[in-house]
Design a protein around this nucleic acid. Structure first.
Lengths: 252, 252
DNA sequence: AGTTTTACCTGACCTATATCAAGGATAATA
DNA sequence: TATTATCCTTGATATAGGTCAGGTAAAACT
């Protein structure tokens, strides 16, 4: 186990946001150096979570939002029949926990799909800092607005798309998130299981499996366990279908 | 046609938020009187929309968020196959347009389901005012967070619930929104058509119709066109099933 | 390394909901 | 008030995707 996993990081030592490769995504605004430092000082870099560990539990008091640095998280509800319902996957540079602000309680749990490190941002600090830095406040509004927009696209997906379109949409969505971080848009590794994909997309595991096999057979993608290669990108985009307003804007 | 429909309201005349019956919902924070007045002054009460009129179009430049005062709005996307996909219904005291902040463009259109009046809140003004009034800023965060939370419940509904549960969920959701505004929770009029309900819930019109007839036959509700009475509330709540974390918190 | 557990795939079958079709009720419009 | 147009309901039929069952491969643990 590396020192990363046994040490609690202390932000007072250095300004880590400055040197973090994700800052252009986390903070896509031109904050003055001194402002970045102020932000930096309220952030705690926590000990990485191991696969399966929980960052926060549904029902717990809301205190912080978290930016994923490495790894992947899922958020989920436990339904009253005891099943898990996944509401989102979170990749590096993405913010999780924003849904807790309203009720002051996390309405979902967040769990690591693989070894995952996060930056903890105590919300009360962030909020008071945002009073002093208007562009930071605007940035928070934007992130929340974007989340609303993305979730609405997800609602369209769940309500109107068939199994093929759902699976294609997820793969293309992940692809664009990898691309955004500078990784290949056509070749990547899924952090989540087929079961988690099905749960998220409102499909049975077997359906996910069948769709992927079919996609492979028709030369759209290449599958090797969790390794995915998108072979016929235009055709996949066509499958995604419904105009993804939010996604389109992201590309611009 | 009343003067309401022919006059453009001017907020400079009086402090209308003070006397508005919705302010406890719109502004569930204790703003100092002078702060309410400041907010009041940036708000424009627009000429009511007639049924079918559009408040803003998908793709248009984002400028304002709107609080519904009377009537009902729907928001929707046009899919690339030309169909409409409804993403939400908005009742009095609810805020529409927040999803436009991120991209500075409305990602959906908003259309009146019946004669509807709204308060226009220019977002740039609201944002600068929120710098001066921290509780206002917090309130905006809360409203956006709540929207994220609600949308995620909707995702659960679309992904995991069957037709009965979907329709029951919509009816109970509307019921709680009527109740919140001081109206009957068990007897109300639907502003939307069966087609719009089906579109929103990811069901065919025929299915919505059949489910409602079945609910009526089994004594759960009473239906008379758009008039709905919830007869067996406990049973309806049981049908809704999945623990509605956000909704529960609202009740508290 | 061996054992257990979990994940993934594939086939056979079934069911919930879509689709098609058609008549009746409402609401909009002239 | 008459006339369209739209909305709603109901029945018959089709189908996408769920469920069940079985086997294999890959992790995770001892």
């Amino acid at each position: 186990m590396s020192s990363l996993q046994s040490t609690r990081f202390n932000s007072k030592l250095t300004s880590q946001c400055q040197s973090c490769s994700l800052s252009a995504l986390c903070l896509p605004i031109s904050l003055a150096d001194e402002d970045v430092n102020r932000l930096d000082q309220i952030i705690e870099r926590k000990k990485p979570l191991k696969k399966g560990e929980v960052l926060f539990h549904q029902g717990e008091e809301f205190s912080s939002v978290y930016a994923v640095r490495t790894g992947t998280l899922k958020t989920f509800n436990i339904t009253n029949s005891g099943e898990e319902q996944i509401t989102g996957f979170y990749c590096p540079s993405e913010l999780v926990g924003l849904s807790g602000i309203d009720s002051n309680t996390y309405p979902v749990s967040a769990k690591a799909l693989e070894t995952t490190s996060v930056c903890e941002i105590p919300f009360s600090h962030l909020e008071s800092l945002s009073s002093q830095i208007p562009s930071l406040k605007h940035q928070i509004f934007k992130v929340m607005s974007r989340k609303i927009c993305d979730d609405q696209q997800m609602m369209v997906l769940l309500g109107k798309k068939n199994a093929d379109e759902k699976v294609a949409s997820l793969l293309m969505n992940l692809s664009s998130r990898f691309k955004r971080r500078g990784y290949s848009a056509t070749s990547f590794r899924l952090a989540m299981s087929r079961g988690e994909i099905g749960n998220y997309l409102g499909l049975a595991v077997e359906t996910v499996s069948r769709v992927m096999t079919r996609f492979q057979k028709s030369g759209l993608i290449h599958v090797d366990g969790k390794e995915i290669a998108i072979v016929n990108l235009p055709e996949m985009q066509k499958l995604v279908g419904i105009t993804e307003e939010c996604a389109k804007i992201e590309v611009v």
